[in-house]
């Protein structure tokens, strides 16, 4: 028996919008810790890891660990039927091949339930080691989104370099080149508007902009984004989900042969 009641149902709607273009089918895992997902894109270059901690739900019942395979496009279709202010409850039974999403309007005058078919997904689960990163950049998520979008009109790949000068995003394409440098800036009115660069060593890595642009679909989930870089590791682009957990995207770098 599984019953998860999420008062801020819009969070789940936003999570689906952030993931459904990157991953087609995924297993949602439910345990005492929370509601989580780990899935790779079809080319095995990018990975999304989601955690919504059990404490963030108003009611969280998960009698035993359960994995539910869902088509994210179909799940998104169902969640789009929930209002932004609706409370969403996810219900499942052991051995059932369906999951139910119940939507309640804030004043309880409309209650809907949508039952979706589950699927068997033979997914690969990757072990992601804890890592020390050479550089961690925290910046407004809207700024990161803007940079990725702007650069992708010039080139296909971006070189992200962190030095003591700041973080530089560079691209080149048929029409020319572009460089955007963001310097540390802590003197802002609100902490989420700050750009904070923690650097242990300079690092420079190349990534496909197509994937970074896809990650920025998570921008509505958080005012700030953290980009963690190490020369031997995939980049981690993390959006914290207030009081609940996170959505993290990993992207393997392009490497010179």
């Amino acid at each position: 028996m599984l019953e998860l009641r999420l008062v801020q149902g819009s969070l789940l709607k936003k999570v689906l919008e952030a993931t459904k273009d990157l991953v087609t089918d995924a297993n949602f895992d439910c345990s005492a810790t929370g509601f989580s997902l780990q899935a790779m894109d079809s080319s095995h270059v990018a990975l999304v890891a989601l955690l919504l901690r059990s404490e963030g739900f108003e009611h969280y019942r998960c009698d035993r660990n359960i994995s539910m395979g869902m088509n994210l496009n179909n799940m998104s279709k169902m969640l789009k039927c929930a209002g932004n202010d609706d409370i969403i409850t996810i219900k499942g039974d052991d051995g059932s091949d369906t999951v139910t999403f119940m939507f309640e309007s804030p004043n309880q005058d409309k209650i809907s339930d949508f039952e979706m078919k589950l699927m068997d997904i033979d997914s690969e689960h990757l072990g992601i080691p804890e890592a020390e990163y050479h550089a961690i950049v925290k910046m407004p998520s809207s700024e990161f989104q803007r940079i990725c979008k702007d650069l992708s009109s010039i080139g296909d790949t971006v070189v992200i370099s962190v030095t003591k000068e700041g973080v530089k995003f560079s691209t080149r394409g048929d029409i020319g080149t572009a460089n955007i440098v963001c310097r540390q800036n802590k003197t802002v009115d609100k902490p989420e508007e700050a750009t904070i660069i923690e650097m242990n060593e300079p690092v420079s890595l190349t990534f496909a902009l197509r994937y970074l642009n896809s990650f920025t679909k998570a921008t509505p989930l958080s005012e700030s984004v953290t980009v963690s870089l190490s020369s031997e590791l995939p980049v981690v682009v993390e959006y914290k989900i207030a009081d609940m957990g996170y959505i993290r995207f990993y992207l393997a770098p392009k490497i010179e042969d």
Binding site: L47, P234, I255, D257
Partner: peptide
């Protein structure tokens, strides 16, 4: 020449 690496080059299958 620049190649796209794969996640399994860095992370292990569990």
């Amino acid at each position: 020449q620049i190649f796209q690496s794969l996640l399994v080059d860095f992370f292990n299958n569990k």
